[in-house]
């Protein structure tokens, strides 16, 4: 089981990083989505894996529980990563509508415009 989870984290990370390095906004956003899956599962796994040990206190005092702390952290992380994705999507969309291009890199030829502007020294 641990091997499966670890390899899933690894695959998600690799896919996320690869998409992150693409040149257009949309794949980068997808890459970030994959990476946030990977990070969330990674954080969750730091509490070690457990089956049938939900952190819901049992009425019969003899139950054992999995580590609840990483779960609480990941829960908010999931919601926050949604917020972050939404902001990125909006900014990417705005950039595309303003520039008519969804490239994320500045073209080196456009970069030279403000070189002539120096201080008024």
């Amino acid at each position: 089981m641990e091997l499966l989870v670890a390899s899933a984290i690894g695959t998600l990370t690799a896919g996320g990083v690869y998409l992150l390095l693409r040149l257009r906004t949309f794949p980068v956003i997808l890459g970030l989505a994959l990476l946030s899956y990977a990070v969330n599962v990674f954080l969750f796994a730091s509490g070690r894996l457990a089956i049938d040990m939900s952190p819901i206190l049992s009425k019969y005092g003899d139950a054992s529980y999995t580590d609840p702390l990483p779960q609480a952290l990941v829960l908010t992380a999931i919601v926050i990563s949604f917020g972050m994705t939404a902001v990125l999507v909006m900014i990417g969309l705005g950039a595309f509508l303003e520039a008519e291009s969804d490239r994320i890199d500045i073209d080196p030829s456009e970069d030279r415009e403000d070189k002539t502007k120096d201080g008024d020294a």
Partner: peptide, 26 residues
């Protein structure tokens, strides 16, 4: 990019595997 991605994935996956096999004080 593929090489970078695979390296990163292997690193994170390996790290996760390593700590999942070890207990910690919590």
């Amino acid at each position: 990019d593929g090489v970078i991605a695979v390296l990163a994935g292997a690193g994170v996956g390996g790290l996760a595997y390593a700590f999942m096999l070890r207990d910690i004080d919590t």
